[in-house]
């Protein structure tokens, strides 16, 4: 749910990074945070366990500049990926404008990817959203690892609606901004339609 503030001439959108445990959602946000100019970003918040696993969410506010006189602000969130945190995951999707699904390219994580997309679909539905229509981008992360599944096969298995898909190595930043731009663009195009 986009928040349009005519008084302060601001538009605020919410993007959620979804995906199975340890797929690199937080690493995506950390890369974006590290590469963004200080004046365009707020503080990054990570609610994590002592072992650095996301417990509730990571949050990063980003200022993308202005469009038609309105400051365009994106609030990026990650969800906790571990299966048993489903109640928390559901909460983060509240009011979402666009979703990035970060898939782990390693062969042994394909089942977890599939289960997580199903979980995303279900949790979106509970908030009244439909994965088939919401702005959405798919990222194949960890392309630098040895046991990765070929891109074509991942596409066949994980692509939901011919959404834009990106190969990525979030630790070095490959594909990270492309994924973000893709979903942000889709959100703005949606706004234009309304």
């Amino acid at each position: 749910m986009t928040f349009i503030n005519y008084a302060s001439k601001e538009i605020n959108c919410k993007i959620v990074f979804y995906g199975p445990g340890l797929c690199g959602k937080t690493t995506n946000l950390q890369y974006i945070y590290n590469k963004t100019a200080p004046e365009s970003k707020g503080k990054m918040i990570s609610l994590a366990t002592e072992a650095d696993r996301t417990l509730f969410f990571d949050f990063l506010p980003l200022d993308l500049g202005s469009i038609r006189g309105f400051t365009t602000r994106f609030h990026l969130y990650t969800v906790p990926g571990q299966v048993f945190y489903d109640a928390s995951r559901k909460l983060i999707l509240k009011g979402v404008d666009g979703v990035v699904f970060v898939a782990d390219s390693q062969e042994e994580r394909m089942e977890a990817n599939i289960e997580s997309i199903r979980n995303l679909e279900q949790n979106l539905k509970e908030h009244g959203f439909d994965l088939a229509t919401i702005p959405y981008a798919l990222q194949f992360n960890k392309r630098d690892l040895p046991s990765v599944v070929p891109v074509e096969e991942m596409y066949r298995t994980l692509n939901y609606k011919r959404e834009p898909t990106f190969e990525a190595v979030a630790t070095t930043g490959v594909g990270v901004f492309d994924t973000l731009k893709s979903v942000a663009k889709q959100i703005l195009i949606e706004l234009k339609k309304r």
């Binding site: 928040f3 503030n5 008084a7 009011g95 404008d97 009244g128 959203f129 229509t133 309304r194």
Partner: peptide, 15 residues
């Protein structure tokens, strides 16, 4: 997106 946008106009903002 199915949820309606949340729109805040100047007048209500002042109130």
């Amino acid at each position: 997106m199915c949820a309606a946008d949340f729109v805040l106009y100047e007048e209500e903002f002042k109130h």
